[in-house]
Computed example of a mutant assay.
Amino acid sequence: MLLTIATVSLFLLLVKLGFWQLSRAELKENIQSQLTARQALAPLSFDQLLALPPTETLTGYRLDVMVSPIGEKVFLLDNQTFNGRVGYLALQVLQVMPDRPWLLVELGFVPAGNDRRQLPTFPQITQTQTLDGRLYQKQANPMSSALMAESGWPKRIQNLNIPQIEEVLNHPVALAVFQPTSIPEIALPHPWKPIPMSAQKHLGYALQWFSLAFAFALLMIFFIRSRLKKK
């Protein structure tokens, strides 16, 4: 009896995992359609960005904005990879308008050195300029979302937690990161992964789970028939 319950439970689990991957694939397809539609829209102004409700997902919107540096406030998001190299994502804090939220602007990927105690050097935005690009919001880390900011500037952080960044800066910050199409005199690469895993990969995983369920069912049928023949 216990063997039967365990067998059926495992089969149902494999099938459930397959359907879960199918639902994830459908979700990713919907997100991709939304991103494509937003890229076709005219760029937002900074006022339009701030007017969007806090519950609105901002990834994919385009933005056209004039920014000015505020000292040399740069966050280095740790544990990033690009083209097989480990490093940081440099995010500079810039002002758009006085007495308004500041904007996190992605300068790009900066490779890490051999000595973790030594932070890398990289170019920064040093003068007022107009930039165009797109916005994104990173998905929260389910294990830990704490900023874990270190002392000094540039400031190494472990997660892109904007509410905690606001506490560090003691100033409000726009809820999305701005990734410029290009920045004059700065040629750092800009990783762009709004969807960490494509819908096609989820469909592939779904096929694997359903295949395992099918193979497991055949194995159990063969086992049961063998037991019956012996009896």
Rank of each mutant, 00 (worst) to 15 (best):
L169T: 01
Q21N: 08
H202E: 01
L103E: 02
T81I: 09
Q164E: 15
V67I: 14
F122S: 04
L103N: 04
L76F: 04
Q137K: 04
N159H: 14
N83P: 03
Q139T: 12
A51R: 08
L3E: 14
L13A: 14
E167S: 14
D99A: 12
F122P: 07
I165T: 00
H202V: 02
Y61S: 01
S226V: 01
G204S: 10
Q137T: 04
V110N: 00
V173Y: 03
L203G: 01
R156D: 02
P69G: 07
L219Y: 15
K28C: 07
V168R: 10
F122Y: 10
L12E: 06
R100V: 03
P184H: 07
L77I: 03
A199I: 03
L77M: 05
L160C: 08
I31P: 00
F214C: 11
S211Y: 10
P123N: 06
P172F: 02
D115P: 08
I70P: 02
P111E: 08
W102Q: 12
P54Q: 04
A6H: 06
P120Y: 07
N83E: 15
L207Y: 11
F222K: 12
R227S: 09
V74K: 02
N141M: 10
F82H: 15
V168P: 09
P154S: 08
G113T: 09
P69C: 03
R227E: 13
L94I: 06
D78N: 15
L44V: 07
N83W: 05
N79W: 00
L107C: 04
N30H: 13
E72M: 07
L119H: 07
Y88W: 07
M197E: 13
